[in-house]
Structure formats: structure tokens, C-alpha cells
């Protein structure tokens, strides 16, 4: 990166370290923090939406929809995460490629499955073999987001379902007595009040989601844990101009600080959110807030 880094052997102390920490490889490491944050930022709202949808489905008066909601939450919560993360992206990828194969290559006579091989026509590949590497990365990232969102959506569905049941029945009955339709009751009475009950459970889920991000590497995306392991591993002179021993402990220390920092930040944000949502609620926290202001 810097001109002075041309000959790392001649460097010492701080200047060696500066050059070492600004190699292309380290820049990729720094970028991977962004990848993780992006995954969190994209996955959390999608999972929340899926959870909301799942909770609504399980409460639905229409039986098949209710079954669908129950099957979704029960299945996803019952299968180990790692199995799910290995299964969903592969199944999704092969499913999409198979669909494209049927549409784009109707004349293709060879079977798609040959022994253990899965081969679709070149035009059906997702992304195409000739596509630049970033398209492959984005595609893999999108599959990862889907897998994370499905798993965490199921847990969120359960939390939100429980929170909806926790809203005092008297509130809903009163709404009914005022002549609100079930839809209006849901939107105006149930949903605004259930968040405060859902928040502790959702906070837990968010924390688990932060910790689950290293599963990204299982899906072929280079996340911070991959780079920490790769960069920290001992390097011989042939493989790197900056040979060093086993430095993994230092890199993992950085990750430790990152994850703890994320946790602290999340706690602060959720504490504020909880306070805000408690205003005017018929809960202990809401009551305390009311007393504090009067």
C-alpha cells in the first residue's frame, strides 16, 4: 500500500507493523467486518418480517395457513442450525438452477443428476460460469441471508406469537366493545402493545444472530473468523513477505473485542427501545415510567 513497504525485510518495529497491517490480505480482513455488519443489517429486518408473518399465520382462523405457520416454526426450530445452513443454500441453489435448466434448455437430453454429479446446462448456471467473481459472492451472500432469515424468522415467529398472547385479554375485549373489527383490533390494539412483550425474546435472538455470523464461512463467504484464522496462522517465507509464527490468539482477541463491543452496543440500544415501548403500557415498567413523570 505504501511505497516504503516495498522491502518488508528491511523494516522494523512500528513501520513493519504498519506495512504488515496494510497488506491486501489485511484490507480484505477489514472489509469482512463490513460483510458481517451488512449481513446483520439485511437479515434482521427480513427475519423479523418472516417472524411476524409466521406468528400471524399460526393465529389465523384459516386452518391450512395455521398448519403452515406451525409446521414452519416447529420444523425450523427443531433442526440443528448447522444442518439447516448446509441444506438450505444447497437445496435453494440446485432448485433454482434446475428450474432455469427446464426453462432455458428444453432440448437438453442428458440427465441433470449423473451419479453424484449435479450438472445443468451452462446457460442455466447461477450465476453463469463466465460471470465476474463479485456476482458469485453476491449470490452466495444472498443465499446466506435467506438461510439466516428462515431460521431466525422461525424463532422470531414463536417469540411474537407468545407476545401476542401476552397482551391482556381485557384490552382486546374493550376494543371489541368499542365496535372495532378484528382487523382494527389487531392493528390498533394488539400489535402496538405486543412489542414490549416480544422485545426480551427478540433481544436474545439478535444476540444469537450476532454470534451465528461465523457460520457464513460454512456457506463459502469469507467472514471475519475465516480471515482471522487465515491471517493468524503461521507463515513461512515462501508464502508471505511477513513471515511469523502462530498469531491466531491476537487475531481472535480482536474478534473477541468486536463481538463484545457489538453486544454492549446492542444492550444500550435495546435498553432505550424498551424504555420507549414501555411508555403508557399496562406493565410494571410502564407503571414505573408513569410514576416517575407524575
Amino acid at each position: 500500500m505504501f511505497a516504503s513497504c516495498a522491502d518488508p525485510k528491511a523494516l522494523e518495529g512500528i513501520s513493519w507493523l504498519v506495512c504488515y497491517l496494510t497488506t491486501g490480505k489485511h484490507l480484505l480482513f477489514f472489509v469482512s467486518f463490513g460483510t458481517v455488519l451488512l449481513l446483520l443489517a439485511v437479515t434482521a429486518p427480513i427475519a423479523l418480517a418472516l417472524g411476524f408473518g409466521g406468528a400471524m399465520a399460526t393465529r389465523s382462523g384459516f386452518a391450512p395457513l395455521r398448519w403452515l405457520g406451525r409446521i414452519y416454526t416447529a420444523m425450523t426450530r427443531g433442526v440443528p442450525d448447522i444442518v439447516f445452513f448446509l441444506f438450505v443454500p444447497i437445496a435453494l441453489d440446485q432448485g433454482l438452477e434446475y428450474l432455469r435448466h427446464r426453462i432455458k434448455c428444453p432440448d437438453w437430453t442428458e440427465p441433470v443428476r449423473k451419479g453424484s454429479d449435479f450438472v445443468v446446462c451452462p446457460a442455466a448456471k447461477l450465476p453463469l460460469s463466465s460471470a465476474p467473481e463479485w456476482e458469485h459472492q453476491v449470490y452466495a451472500f444472498a443465499l446466506a441471508v435467506v438461510a439466516f432469515a428462515i431460521v431466525f424468522g422461525a424463532f422470531a415467529a414463536n417469540v411474537i406469537h407468545g407476545a401476542m398472547n401476552a397482551v391482556p385479554k381485557a384490552q382486546l375485549e374493550t376494543a371489541d366493545a368499542y365496535g372495532m373489527s378484528p382487523r382494527q383490533t389487531f392493528r390498533r390494539i394488539l400489535v402496538p402493545q405486543m412489542w414490549v412483550y416480544a422485545l426480551p425474546g427478540l433481544t436474545n435472538l439478535w444476540m444469537i444472530l450476532i454470534k451465528a455470523t461465523p457460520l457464513l464461512f460454512v456457506l463459502g463467504i469469507e467472514d471475519i473468523v475465516y480471515w482471522a484464522r487465515e491471517l493468524g496462522g503461521s507463515k513461512t517465507t515462501g508464502a508471505s513477505a511477513y513471515p511469523h509464527g502462530d498469531w491466531r490468539v491476537y487475531y481472535f482477541l480482536v474478534l473477541l473485542c468486536f463481538y463484545l463491543g457489538m453486544t454492549r452496543l446492542s444492550e444500550l440500544v435495546f435498553a432505550r427501545l424498551y424504555r420507549r415501548l414501555s411508555h403508557g403500557q399496562a406493565t410494571l415498567a410502564g407503571e414505573q415510567l408513569r410514576k416517575a413523570t407524575t
Binding site: 497488506t23 491486501g24 490480505k25 460460469s129 463466465s130 487465515e230 496462522g233 515462501g238 508464502a239 508471505s240
Partner: peptide, 23 residues
């Protein structure tokens, strides 16, 4: 389209294959 061959490797077994300083 088929002319691009994607070559898979581990990138963690020097000197067979590894990730250099440039990444």
C-alpha cells in the same frame, strides 16, 4: 459461456496453494 472454467482450491497449503499478501 462454458469456456470459463472455475478452478477450486483450498488456499491454505503452501507451497501448493495459499493466499499471498495481496489476498
Amino acid at each position: 459461456g462454458a469456456d470459463t472454467i472455475r478452478m477450486g482450491t483450498e488456499g491454505a497449503y503452501p507451497p501448493f496453494n495459499f493466499i499471498n499478501d495481496k489476498g
